[in-house]
Amino acid sequence: MENNNYAIETNDLSIHYGSFTAVKGVNMKVERQKITAIIGPSGCGKSTLLRAFNRMNDFVPSCHVTGELLLDNQNLYSKDIDPVEVRRKIGMVFQKPNPFPKSIYENIAWGARINGFKGKMDELVEQSLRSAALWDEVKDKLQQSAYALSGGQQQRLCIARTIAIQPEIILMDEPASALDPISTLRIEELMQELKKNYTIIIVTHNMQQAARASDYTAMMMIDDQRAGGVIEFDATKTIFTRPGDKRTEDYVTGRFG
């Protein structure tokens, strides 16, 4: 296979809820092993776009997608693609921590097990937790309920759970918005660590976070039909220092609406 540098490419990707177009004409190339941030005002379709990347929108009955989403030159929306496999390859961390109401150990083991993991489970659990910088805090209580963890720990557990199924890409939808500043910082550090091996796409409302943590930034905005679109996509540095679009500049400097 030709080794291309992009984890995901979109080709005129549009996402519709019924007759309403929520996201329109997105063309993006997401580089491998980089952190790409998606920013933009509320309701502009960030979550919608992110969820389109691993076909989570399949569960919204009214939602359908046009255009192409390419991963290794395969269109993930073509008829012969299995959405379950897609989600296995592109993991997701949600805005609110959502561990399973099971033990910490089971939270990680379950995803591996249903995906046919045949290696040593204990090892996988430990490695995943270490990768999520959670191991030291929970190693003595692996059999306890995940619900007993703090919000920040829960979110790292969700990241560990995603790592355990060894995806290529990790999607994160405002993963730190429900967390306090310290936990937020830990998640950001973790992202830097993870990007050595994974491609990360993160939606965030926090400009500092985007500026601090990401390599590339996509700026989204709605047009007059309320359809969101990527108005600018560039290296984070460029977006935050010399934005090409006036609206981006307004937004990142906080002068927006």
Binding site: M56, V84, G91, F94, A164
Partner: peptide
């Protein structure tokens, strides 16, 4: 959120329901 969590780690629909 529980269903999404399961789908997010690559579970099929029935696995999500059953587990």
């Amino acid at each position: 959120s529980l269903r999404q969590a399961a789908f997010g780690v690559g579970a099929t629909r029935w696995q999500t329901i059953w587990h």
